[in-house]
Amino acid sequence: MWFVISNRFFSVGLILFSGMLTSCSVQDDIAVDNAWIPEAPPSVSALAGYLDITNHFSNTMTLSGAESAFFKEVVLHQTVVDRETDFARMIEQSTVTIQAGQTLKLNPGGYHLMLLNPRQMINTERLIPIILLFENGYQKKVEFKVRPFRLHLEAN
């Protein structure tokens, strides 16, 4: 009898606890949207990751990098195309800041996560987890969809 009661109490506690957890993650957070990696032939050793990152915190957040077990290295990059000469450069960014309430868009021809030396097959069958790292220690795990570039063009 005693055992049953305590078990019941435990369950109630568990429900309360998980409720707290859920409400936490719904409130202040970093929200991500449209995370995708353009599909590429398996022999390619550099891929790009794109997504929209919205800062729902009340303070500025500084993205300082990313990591993934699927790649040897992930680097923050910005592509800059000179309008006049059409010369394109990929510039490594140590940090990118996102003001409170703002959305940072990583898009083809702009910011991207440079995904180097895949350790596993990157194909449309699976989601690719990448952890976004912020300067203040905050981390956000994001699952990226792999899809053909064509779909991105069609969506525009």
């Binding site: 590429a40 390619v44 550099a46 083809p108 021809g109 991207h112 440079m114 991105h152």
Partner: peptide, 17 residues
């Protein structure tokens, strides 16, 4: 070059389209 994950696939995709 193929080690170019952003600009080259973008332009090749536009060409392909």
């Amino acid at each position: 070059y193929t080690f170019c994950p952003d600009i080259c696939p973008t332009n090749l995709s536009h060409l392909t389209q």
